[in-house]
Simulated scan of single mutants.
Amino acid sequence: MGKKRLALWARLALGLLALIILLVSGFVIWGSTPARPMPEVYERVPGLNEVSPGERWLTFSPDGGPATVGLILYPGGRVDFRAYAPTAQAIADQGYFVALVRMPLNLAVFDPDAAAEVIAAHPEIEHWAVGGHSLGGAMAAHFAATHPGSVDGLVLWAAYPASSDDLSQSGARVVSISASLDGLSTPEKIAASRPLLPADTVWVTIEGGNHAQFGWYGPQSGDAPAAIPREAQQVQIVEATVELLESLK
């Protein structure tokens, strides 16, 4: 009887181990198959196809000389970070340094402190803002909340802090950019985050915009169709982001 029980427990243990391996493998595959950049991304930002798998972040610099204000951007959940390259380039063209961070398994929750590495690697930047889209924005808010004094500004694109990340007394300059037709970070969710952010937070709502058009990766499940072109939404995103960065000079 003892041997039979041992054999049964051994089979159960092996079955449980196989299940765990299957679940972990499935999660890794799920995280490793993000929304890909739209074809026009590679036309707007040449060279993205040559990005090596080991590059931790992409940098974008202005043509008119060295920048003193920088923005660190975290991508949305399960979105290839290159899908935000046109937006990063447009911001850099206005005179700012931008670092677009690659996340493990395309999920910023696995490396919310990535901004610290970027800051350490670029001591020439005098003032920093951290920001991101959706999950990336939430993790950027987490970094700002848990590293007081490391950044001067926070840029939220269709994003809001977790309830544990109260930034209301942080002193950081914050802009929250949302879209009226966002089916994921809905206007109601954005409004509910107000108590967690400073009283002087700038709130920008893009009328007719949606969640997916904060990047360049195509439609997204659960989102609502946009009523304005992606280019029109992007212009407003860049404009509001640059205004925040300008205030840090």
Rank of each mutant, 00 (worst) to 15 (best):
W203M: 02
W9T: 11
L181K: 12
L154W: 05
R11P: 09
D63L: 14
P123C: 10
F214K: 03
V175R: 00
A232Q: 11
S163M: 03
Y96P: 05
E231W: 12
R102K: 13
K249P: 05
G77V: 06
F27C: 14
F143I: 14
G31Q: 08
L48R: 05
A7G: 08
M139G: 01
N49W: 07
P195V: 03
H133T: 03
M38C: 04
L16P: 08
E246I: 13
P37N: 03
T186S: 07
A10P: 06
A67P: 02
G31Y: 00
L17H: 10
Q220I: 10
L248T: 03
A90C: 05
P123Q: 04
F143N: 04
P219M: 09
S168F: 08
I228E: 04
R230N: 09
F97Q: 09
A162T: 11
G95T: 02
L22I: 14
T146E: 11
T87W: 07
R36M: 14
A83L: 01
L105T: 06
D223L: 15
A114T: 11
D152K: 06
V69F: 07
A115F: 06
T241S: 01
L12M: 14
D152N: 13
Q169T: 13
G209W: 09
F27D: 14
A141P: 09
G218Y: 09
I125A: 11
Q169L: 12
A13R: 04
D63F: 13
H122Q: 10
S185M: 07
A88T: 01
D63Q: 14
F60D: 07
A92K: 00
G171D: 10
W9I: 13
Y74N: 00
Y42E: 05
Y160E: 06
A129G: 10
L100G: 05
I237R: 03
P225C: 04
P195G: 07
N106E: 00
S32D: 14
Q220V: 11
R11Q: 14
E124W: 05
A162P: 04
R11I: 15
Y160G: 00
D182P: 06
A121Q: 05
E231A: 12
P123F: 12
V204M: 07
K4Q: 15
V79K: 00
D152S: 12
W30L: 11
E126W: 08
V155S: 05
E126N: 08
E243L: 15
Q234W: 04
T68R: 12
I21T: 13
L6Q: 11
G31D: 06
P112K: 02
A159D: 03
G70I: 10
G65L: 05
G2Q: 08
L8F: 15
P161N: 03
T146F: 06
T186V: 05
G208D: 05
E50W: 12
D165G: 01
A138S: 03
P53M: 09
G222K: 01
V175N: 02
I119S: 00
G222L: 10
R194A: 14
V130T: 09
T33C: 13
F27A: 13
K3Y: 14
A240Q: 08
D63S: 15
A67R: 02
I21E: 11
W9L: 13
P53G: 03
A224L: 15
V69R: 03
E40G: 12
M1V: 04
A10T: 14
